[in-house]
Simulated assay, not measured.
Amino acid sequence: MSALFRKIHHICIVVHDLERAEAYYASLGFGPFYDYPKKGAYAELDVPNPAASAAMRYRCADLDNMQLQLCAPGELDSPQRRFLDEQGEGVYHLGFEVPDIDAGVAAGRAVGLGIIARGKRVDGGGFCYFDTRSEAGTVLEIRTA
């Protein structure tokens, strides 16, 4: 289990206005920002609302030791939209790299972690958002590089 959350990849902040948030972070020296690089279609995709997931907009900035992601969830119902409506802007999740998404999902399930959303691409890469909000104070995600 401990290997799941050892290598941080990114912090994701949910925002109302992506352009305003990006401009502010850029004024502090973050950047350059770029669109989140979608790496192709998913062979498996289990998300609460596929249309909402597809409509989300992300802007990313690579830092020396990790990535900052800004997420504008759009108006459709999604966990990110609900977070924004209920709690306002802030850290939605911490993303960690794992070498094998299937093994990571299995390890999370083995210790009783619920899953909010997950996806796996044809190349074997993917992601999994664990429902750790009540205990960790935020969502913990695993992903492959």
Results as ranks from 00 to 15, higher is better:
1 M>A: 11
1 M>I: 01
3 A>K: 11
3 A>H: 14
4 L>K: 03
4 L>W: 09
4 L>A: 12
5 F>Q: 09
5 F>R: 13
6 R>H: 10
8 I>E: 01
9 H>W: 09
10 H>E: 06
10 H>S: 07
10 H>F: 07
12 C>N: 10
12 C>L: 09
12 C>M: 10
13 I>M: 14
13 I>P: 02
14 V>P: 11
14 V>S: 01
16 H>Q: 15
19 E>C: 04
19 E>Y: 04
21 A>T: 08
22 E>S: 04
23 A>M: 04
24 Y>H: 13
24 Y>R: 14
25 Y>V: 07
26 A>N: 15
27 S>F: 09
28 L>M: 15
28 L>Q: 14
29 G>I: 06
30 F>K: 05
30 F>Q: 10
30 F>G: 12
30 F>N: 02
33 F>D: 05
33 F>M: 10
35 D>Q: 14
36 Y>W: 11
38 K>F: 08
40 G>C: 07
42 Y>W: 12
44 E>M: 12
49 N>P: 07
50 P>F: 06
52 A>W: 09
54 A>S: 13
54 A>H: 00
56 M>D: 06
59 R>W: 01
61 A>N: 12
61 A>I: 03
62 D>H: 02
65 N>K: 10
65 N>P: 00
65 N>W: 07
69 Q>L: 15
74 G>C: 06
78 S>W: 00
79 P>M: 02
81 R>H: 00
84 L>Q: 00
85 D>Y: 00
86 E>H: 03
87 Q>F: 07
88 G>Y: 03
89 E>H: 09
90 G>W: 12
91 V>N: 08
92 Y>F: 15
92 Y>W: 07
93 H>R: 09
94 L>N: 03
94 L>D: 02
96 F>P: 03
98 V>C: 07
98 V>I: 01
100 D>S: 06
101 I>H: 13
101 I>P: 12
101 I>Q: 03
101 I>A: 08
101 I>T: 07
102 D>P: 04
102 D>T: 10
102 D>Q: 09
103 A>V: 03
103 A>R: 07
104 G>Y: 01
105 V>T: 08
106 A>N: 14
111 V>A: 02
115 I>D: 06
119 G>N: 05
120 K>F: 01
122 V>T: 12
125 G>A: 14
127 F>L: 11
127 F>V: 06
128 C>S: 12
128 C>R: 08
130 F>S: 04
133 R>Q: 13
134 S>N: 11
134 S>Y: 12
139 V>N: 00
141 E>P: 01
142 I>P: 13
143 R>H: 09
143 R>L: 15
143 R>G: 12
144 T>E: 13
